[in-house]
Structure formats: structure tokens, C-alpha cells
Design a protein around this nucleic acid. Structure first.
Lengths: 194, 194
DNA sequence: CCATTTCGTTGACATTTGTCAACGGTTTTT
DNA sequence: AAAAACCGTTGACAAATGTCAACGAAATGG
């Protein structure tokens, strides 16, 4: 169960994990199963855990006044889930996070996570690398949203995250791109013709 | 000249700066003036310096096939400018960065910056805090772009970054919001009526 | 000080995207 | 196995936004 997390940390750090590091990690990351549609976080709650996804898929989204869902982030195996802003600042989250598929995750609390960052160099390195990549991905998404057509944004997604298209239904992909499912359906059929 | 930078670092760290820290900082951050429209970075170049803005305003934008500019980021006094992705990964940038106003900046090279992160604790703390905040701001911008109306996005900007509205003309604000200047003009006059 | 550029606005019109409703084909649940 | 929910598509129409052109006011540069 913890194997994929340990492999993941090793892959994203230069400092190797010691035996005692492994002990700490196994102790502080506790496995949890999520059923389809089960919430990991709800709007208004403070996010006090992060989840490493071992198997399955989760989504993070905001809900507007009319009940419409807007996909902020999609995560599958070997990705993290959690609202980083709420987690770091201990303020209520604006988002929901739930399991889209049956999911196996490893949960870590804020305290344990912070302790690990301090005592395990590899953990710190991995965390920095990921935060950095995450910021790059977000800026690219902002750039796409203000500079590309719907068709180009979809092509971008297909190129950069092809897994998403196979794991999530189109209405979720559409929401992630900031459009309706009908528009996505039409854009796709247009593109197919060419 | 370096005063505002030093104050800025102190404000964003808990560890105080020592005398020797100050020496290092003064040595590695070199002042540079930018005239209006002068480039700090051009598409295709690798960003090997970061700029701390002491006075003035800069903008970061991509340019599409038709020559249209899309504002990715706006920065004024006490903000940073530079393409973090290009800077960190040493890959060619997709963006242009230029001075919108006559600007006084302090430039630091990648090597000096990395050395400082290692040797000056306050610098490391500040850097982490800022990267974190930057990531939060980006996620909020993504959320706004897929879940809010143009009117709401403008109101958001007005609330969170009122300085921008006074420092940059409306066609730049419009681009930052991902719309045309005409649409922004109309949305504003609509809102005024209410 | 004049010439030029920039800026914001407006109108007319085209294009894109959203909304609502319906449908058949799935998958899921009971 | 039947019923219900979900999914993707399509059509007709409405609403939002973009495009192009024009204008005057203001700022800028020589």
C-alpha cells in the first residue's frame, strides 16, 4: 500500500530515504478507501489532511449559486488531492473534493506532514519540486484560458494529460475547460471531420 | 535603493537578516532602470534573472499568431517579475516581459539567487511564502476564469488588486481578464448604471 | 507647440457559446 | 429483470462576446 508513495517520493528527490524515514512515513500516512462520490472535503471545511492517491480518481470543484460544478483540478493515481490554500492557511475551503472512482488513498495530517518536511530531506525536496511544477501548470492553464480557443485548449489537454480524457466523462472535461458539455461535444465533432 | 527590498524580505520572513546577509544582498542585487516599453525578457530567451520592482510597473504576456497580446501577469512596486518556469528549468520562455512605466528594478542572477537561498534563512523563508501565495493566487484565477461571469471577474480584480486598475489602462486589464477592451468597456458602463 | 500615438467608447454586425429540451444508449441501482 | 440515473449528442434559439470601423479626448514625443 505504501509502496507506490515511497517510490513516488524517491523519484522526486535526490536524497535517498533511510530505513527510519520509511518507518515514519508508514506510520503517518494512513490508508483510506473512498467510495464513488464520497467526499474528502466539503466547502466551508478546513482541509487538514492531504491525500496521496494510490488507485482511483478524485476531483476538486467549486459550486456556483445555481448548483453548477466547476472542475478546478482532477487527480488520478500518483497524484495528490487536497486544498493547499486551506491546508496551509487553515481557513475554510471554497471547494469540494470527492472520489470520482472507487479510490484508495493515503492520508496525512498537517502536523505529521510538517514534521516530515522538517525531518526527512527527501520529503522536503519532493514537496518543493511538486509545488513548483504545480505553479507552472497553473500558469500554463491561465495562459491557455486567456489566449487559446476552445479547440486549442482541448487539444492541449489531450496532449498534456491524455489520461484525463479516458478517466473522466466529457461533462467533467468540459467543466475543467470552462465550457459546457454541449459545446465540447460540438467542438469535438467539428475537429473529427478535419 | 536596496532598502525596499530589505524591508520586503524582513516582512516576509521570521528570521531576521544579519549584517553579513545585508552585504550579500546588496552585492548580488544590481539596480537597473527600464524605460517605458523596454524588454526585460523576450519570447524564446531563457530567463536567467529575477527582478524586484522598486518603482514602476511591468507586465508579462504571451503573443498569439495574430500579434494579440495576452496579459499573464502584472507587477508593480514590491512585486517580482520574471518567468519562474524558464528561470527554474532553464528552458526558453513563452512570454515577453517589459516595463509599462519607467521602472527601477533590482536584478539577481540564478546563481546568486540560489546561493542566497542556501545561505540566508530569511531569504529561503520569504521565497517559500511567496511561491505559496503565488500558487494560491493562480488557482483562484483559474477558478474565476471557469466559474465567474465577466462582471464578477472584474469586481474580483477591483477588490483584490485595486492598484492595477489605476496603474494599467483598460485594454491591458481586459487582456488580463481574457476579454477584449470593447467588452470590458461595455461591462463597466452596464455596472455603473446600477 | 504641433503632430502623432494611445485610449476609451460606441454602433453594426458576425461568431461563439450557453440554455433548454429531447433522444437513445449506456450504466447503475434496486 | 425492471427502474432509475447518467452520458453524449443534436436541434432551435437566446445571450454573450468578438470584430471592425469610426470618433474625440487625452497623453506623449519630438
Amino acid at each position: 500500500m505504501h509502496e507506490s508513495l515511497i517510490k513516488y517520493i524517491s523519484n522526486h528527490a535526490v536524497t535517498p530515504l533511510t530505513e527510519s524515514d520509511l518507518e515514519i512515513i508508514k506510520k503517518s500516512f494512513t490508508p483510506k478507501k473512498f467510495r464513488k462520490r464520497q467526499f474528502f472535503l466539503q466547502e466551508g471545511e478546513v482541509c487538514n489532511q492531504l491525500a496521496f492517491i494510490v488507485k482511483g480518481a478524485m476531483r476538486q470543484y467549486s459550486v456556483d449559486g445555481k448548483g453548477g460544478e466547476h472542475m478546478i483540478r482532477l487527480s488520478i493515481e500518483n497524484w495528490w488531492a487536497g486544498d493547499r490554500e486551506s491546508f496551509s492557511t487553515q481557513t475554510p475551503s471554497k471547494y469540494f473534493i470527492d472520489a470520482w472512482e472507487e479510490t484508495d488513498a493515503l492520508l496525512v495530517t498537517k502536523n505529521d506532514f510538517n514534521d516530515e518536511l522538517k525531518s526527512i530531506p527527501a520529503m522536503m525536496e519532493m514537496s518543493r519540486v511538486l509545488d513548483e511544477r504545480h505553479a507552472f501548470a497553473l500558469l500554463n492553464r491561465v495562459n491557455a484560458s486567456i489566449s487559446l480557443s476552445v479547440e486549442q485548449r482541448y487539444a492541449d489537454l489531450e496532449k498534456n494529460y491524455p489520461e484525463f480524457l479516458q478517466r473522466f466523462p466529457q461533462h467533467i472535461i468540459a467543466s475543467y475547460l470552462g465550457i459546457t458539455k454541449e459545446t465540447l461535444s460540438r467542438v469535438r465533432s467539428q475537429t473529427m471531420k478535419k
